[in-house]
Structure formats: C-alpha cells, structure tokens
Design a protein around this nucleic acid. Structure first.
Lengths: 232, 232
DNA sequence: CGGTTCATTGATCGTGGTCAACTCGAGTGG
DNA sequence: CCACTCGAGTTGACCACGATCAATGAACCG
C-alpha cells in the first residue's frame, strides 16, 4: 500500500475489467499486442502452438499474475492466453504501464519481480520436461500447482486442493499424451501417493510425492513466496 | 547512445569486468546472488540441475545478454551460468542496477526488454522439448542459434556459423542423450540438410531445415531483432 | 606416452506413443 | 422423454522412438 495516490493512478490507467468464462481466449498467438493483464481472480494458462497444431502449456497463471506484454517493439504475441476457470482480468494499456512504471518505482519493481519470477517458473517446467520421466513430470506439476495454490511448503499428508485441469491440459503441460497422463495418475493412485480425480488433488504420501518431483531446493520458496513489493 | 552522462553513470556503477576461459562457472545454482551480469563478448549458457545430477540448459547467452539477477527477495540462484567460449562480463551490483533503473528510464526499458525477450526464448525451447521429435528439436536448436549468431532471417543455403557447442551440450539443451544427438546430426548430414562438425554449422538445405524446425512465425523476428532501446 | 574429453557406431531394451474401444456425464434438440 | 452428440476419462494391445550399454577412434595435453 504505497498510498492512495498510487492506487488512483492505477485506477486511472486501467480499462474496464474483463470477465471471462472457463475456456475463453484472452488473446491468440500472433495477435497484435498492446495491453498488459493482471489476473484478479481465477486461473488461466499461457500456451504456444506449432504450425501443425501441437500445443505446449508454457505456464499456469494464478491470481496476481501479470501477463500479456511482449518485448516492446515486437508486434505479435508469441503465445496465447486462455482462462481455465471463470476469471476476472484487469486490463492496462501499454502507455499506462509505462506511465505507472515511470512515476511509481515500486510499481516498476513489482512488475520486474513478476516477470523474473515467471521466467523461473518456466525454467522449472523446462527442466522437468527435458530431464524427468513421465511420472516425475506429473508429480512435479501437481506439486508445483498444489504449493502455488495453497501457498505453503511443505505439503502435508491429507492436503486437498482444487486444480482446474483436465488430463489433456496436464498432457500439454508435461509434454506427454493424455493417455499416458491417465496411466501415471492411476499409478500415483495405486501407489498411494496422491489422488487426482474430478480436478481435485489429495496428497496421501507427501514425502513420496516430493521425492518423485525431485525439486531443486530453491523452487518451493519461489512458489509460495509473495512479492516483496507491496504496491497494488 | 543516450549521452555521456548515462554512460558515465553505468561506468560508475559497474565493478571490474570478469574474463573467463571456456567452461568457467560464472555462478553456481543455489549460490547467493547480488549482482547482474552483462555478457560483453563470448557465449555462455544457463543451466538448471536436479538433485540427482541431470542437467537442463535453460538458454544460451550471446553477447549483449543480461543475466544473473534473481527475483528480488529470493536469496538463491535457481540456475548456474557457465562460459562456453572465452568470455568477458560486465558486473553490476544490485544497488547499482536499481540506481541506474531509477535515473535512466531507457536503461530500465532496455533491461525489461532483455528479460522479456529471454522469457520468450525459454518459451520457444520449452515448446520444442515438449512437443517436437528428436530430429526436430535438434533442427530447431541449430536454427535458433544460427539465426541469433548471424542476426539474419531467413537462413540461406551455404550459410556457415561457428556454434561453440559440444554434442553433450546440445543433448542437455534438447532433453535427448548425447548418443541420440549424434545420430540425429548424422541423419541431417545424410539427408543433405545441414552439417554440424567441429562446432561449425553449414546449412545445405535451408528450406528443409526450417521445415524440420517448424517455427511459429513470430520467433525469427525475436531472434534477429535488437533492442529498440539504444542505451549502452 | 597414458589420460583426458569428444565423437561415433552397433546391439538391445523399455518408456511412452499410437490406435481402438468403451464408459460416463452434461448438454441439446426432436 | 429419449436419442444424440460431445468432451473427458479409462483401459488394453501393440509398436517405435529414443535410452542404455558397450566398444572404439581421434584429438589434445600434461
């Protein structure tokens, strides 16, 4: 809370909020870009598609996420954004962003923090897909999203979280097929590690799940941490 | 070139440059962080390792790259940086970065541009590893690095570039094994698409190579483009 | 020289993809 | 009210892409 003036400036810069149903597209890949979004509530995801239709989930967006702006001077989005649940977005034109950054250093710091954090999230996913086996990838994704949703580390036995993902989406995020994701979820269930059914995750054996995810030690803090900048 | 004053400020903020031989580690994963680096000359890479030693290349750094700063408030690096060639680094402490950002908006813009661009590079790699087959991944990586090194699109038949990569490094960047990378390079050679030997790439059939890489249309501009901000 | 590291190739194996069939709801329209 | 579709999930059978294991050669270097 850096004061009423800052908040007023933000209010002045933003356009009306957007309300989206699940599955709605915020923007398409290759669409021209000139606004930034702030996810107020709900979940969303960024995806990148190849010309032949194969699709990769780049990252999942939880409330508070900032997304949309492309490197300035680049005209087109390199990814698409899609709502996973009913979602509310705050929309800020690029000029508004620039003005806010210039006048409110804390806003600028926070924005940069968000972007750097998102890069680290993507890095973790990259390592997961490049180096882990199928069951490890699924375990990693479930752990990441559970911790981000719960904002807590470590996970405890019995923890339950709603994760608004279909098995197809998990497949697109892990680089597996939906069929194989199904098999891996069944295995986690049969091994009494975790249950993911009807878009709810229940952790049965947190230690086993974390062992499968084999996290680098610095990631949990990143997932559960909040911005050190209090603006907005 | 935003003027002598800005350059002088940068000079004042930076520490002595670092000169590194190939293979030198700039910083380790989980090392505390409080400086940013600017790669003056040479190539380097960022990697992330799992507890059991598996390693993923997150991105390749070419001259001009900015790297090192972690999201503020996070103590530890989530990745390691390693020189691939003899390299010269400009070292700027975090306080210096903050001061420069505050006083020179163009510096701030350029920094944010670099970070956003790097995120897009990582996104492309993520899609590649998640969705492409082995030979496509190798083709994609070669195309990306060739275009970034040449700063030109499209590639032409006969183009030759030095890429300071061992097959092991290509393997770590593509999520394949070094043995399989070797087979894919042989196949590219036998199919008369491209030759990669002794760390030099020669493009024989640019159209075929690009078809294998199946690039989303917005990426080439990103690879060959330079920052719209002229500071420093 | 022995000792690296890097590249190369063959043989074999297994993880994960592909194909196919089926269930189970939640719409939707006759 | 029931047939119909559509998407999500489930399971089995089969196969192939890429991993693994192993051996060898070339270049470089103390």
């Amino acid at each position: 809370m850096r004061g009423a003036a800052a908040l007023a400036a933000l209010e002045a810069a933003r356009k009306p909020a957007r309300y989206l149903p699940p599955g709605a597209i915020v923007y398409h890949q290759e669409e021209p870009d000139d606004v930034a979004f702030n996810l107020i509530s709900g979940w969303a995801m960024l995806t990148q598609s190849l010309p032949d239709g194969r699709r990769q989930v780049l990252r999942f967006l939880l409330p508070g996420a900032v997304f949309g702006p492309t490197p300035q001077g680049q005209a087109l989005h390199g990814s698409a954004a899609e709502a996973l649940t009913p979602a509310v977005l705050c929309v800020i034109p690029r000029e508004g962003m620039t003005a806010l950054r210039r006048h409110w250093p804390e806003f600028d710091d926070r924005l940069m923090w968000c972007i750097e954090r998102d890069a680290e999230l993507a890095a973790g996913l990259l390592t997961s897909i490049g180096q882990r086996t199928a069951i490890e990838r699924v375990a990693y994704l479930l752990v990441e999203l559970a911790m981000r949703a719960l904002r807590r580390f470590p996970l405890r036995n019995g923890d339950t979280v709603a994760l608004p993902l279909t098995q197809t989406v998990i497949a697109e995020a892990t680089g597996l097929t939906a069929v194989h994701v199904n098999r891996m979820l069944r295995e986690l269930r049969q091994r009494q590690v975790a249950i993911f059914l009807q878009r709810r995750l229940t952790v049965l054996d947190a230690a086993a799940l974390l062992a499968l995810a084999s996290l680098p030690p610095e990631l949990p803090a990143l997932w559960t941490g909040t911005s050190p900048f209090s603006f907005a």
